[in-house]
């Protein structure tokens, strides 16, 4: 399969990329290309211009900024999975990255590309929701921040506008006593999440002080399972409480349907994996 013809641009800076994005009609940003190129090969999209931002060094890598962890949008899944800094400061993101696709895909695909592509079965959305990451985007009117909650607006749609570029993902340090886990049921062929659940729980004096549950793969966009969170906070997180809370994992969500999983089966998997993810996070909270 060969993509339709296009002109290729490889800007050296974000400013140059923004200028190209404003001046070229029918342009698409290329990050690692592992979502865009398959779509171009199928001719689902045929942009006239491709702007390759994957080579912009300022967008690559992980750093600390005070108490926040800052991940450049063009950082690959492998770089995130293997970063000692991410593993120490936001282990959920490293665990999530390690479960994406396969070795070759993780070597090339980027967190920014994946987030903006906003595939309803992608892994990162659940994780950025659960760690309450903030996405920094730049555009003609300067810089703005989008909360994870406001980021995913629909199937393959994010809050990043066509003339903006996602530059970094910021994660605030989580207090001691916090446990985090990402568990997924991968599609046996594609590796995408039929269901993926990211859980963050914080214990204080034996009780759950905070719970954040991000769920991907189930609905048209990833979401926070607020009913589950409410049912967990204030409890001692015993097995019965977790099981009862997890029953609400797909409440109010119109679950996706495909050849592999019916809506009912997906909702069932969401409940099962929420229960398991909360338990795994709790176990790690005890050790944190």
């Amino acid at each position: 399969m060969i993509p339709a013809a296009f002109d290729y641009h490889a800007p050296a800076s974000v400013d140059e990329a923004l200028r190209l994005l404003r001046s070229l009609p029918d342009a698409k940003l290329l990050a690692g290309g592992h979502s865009l190129l398959p779509m171009m090969k199928l001719r689902v999209v045929s942009p006239g211009h491709v702007i390759d931002i994957g080579r912009i060094q300022a967008l690559c890598g992980v750093r600390e900024d005070g108490r926040a962890l800052v991940i450049g949008a063009m950082t690959t899944h492998w770089a995130i999975e293997s970063s000692p800094l991410v593993r120490a400061r936001a282990p959920l993101l490293a665990e999530c990255a390690s479960r994406i696709g396969d070795i070759q895909v993780r070597n090339v695909g980027t967190i920014g590309g994946s987030l903006v592509h906003a595939d309803p079965a992608a892994d990162y959305p659940a994780a950025v929701l659960a760690v309450e990451a903030e996405m920094t985007v730049v555009g003609a009117e300067g810089r703005r921040t989008i909360r994870a909650r406001d980021f995913f607006t629909g199937v393959l749609s994010s809050a990043v506008r066509a003339d903006e570029i996602l530059t970094e993902i910021r994660v605030s340090a989580l207090p001691p006593g916090t446990g985090q886990a990402y568990l997924k049921f991968p599609h046996p062929a594609s590796g995408f999440a039929v269901v993926g659940v990211a859980a963050v729980v914080r214990l204080r004096g034996g009780r759950c002080e905070d719970a954040r549950i991000g769920v991907t793969g189930v609905g048209p966009t990833a979401y926070r399972a607020e009913a589950v969170e409410k049912a967990l906070v204030g409890t001692t997180l015993d097995d019965r409480t977790i099981a009862a809370a997890a029953e609400h994992a797909a409440d109010g969500v119109e679950a996706n349907e495909d050849l592999f999983a019916t809506p009912d089966y997906r909702a069932h998997l969401a409940r099962v994996f929420t229960k398991r993810a909360v338990r795994a996070a709790l176990e790690r909270a005890g050790r944190a």
């Binding site: 290729y8 290309g33 190129l37 070759q104 895909v105 090339v108």
Partner: peptide, 8 residues
């Protein structure tokens, strides 16, 4: 290691 069918 990369899949060269998905790299320009």
């Amino acid at each position: 290691a990369v899949k060269s069918c998905t790299v320009l």
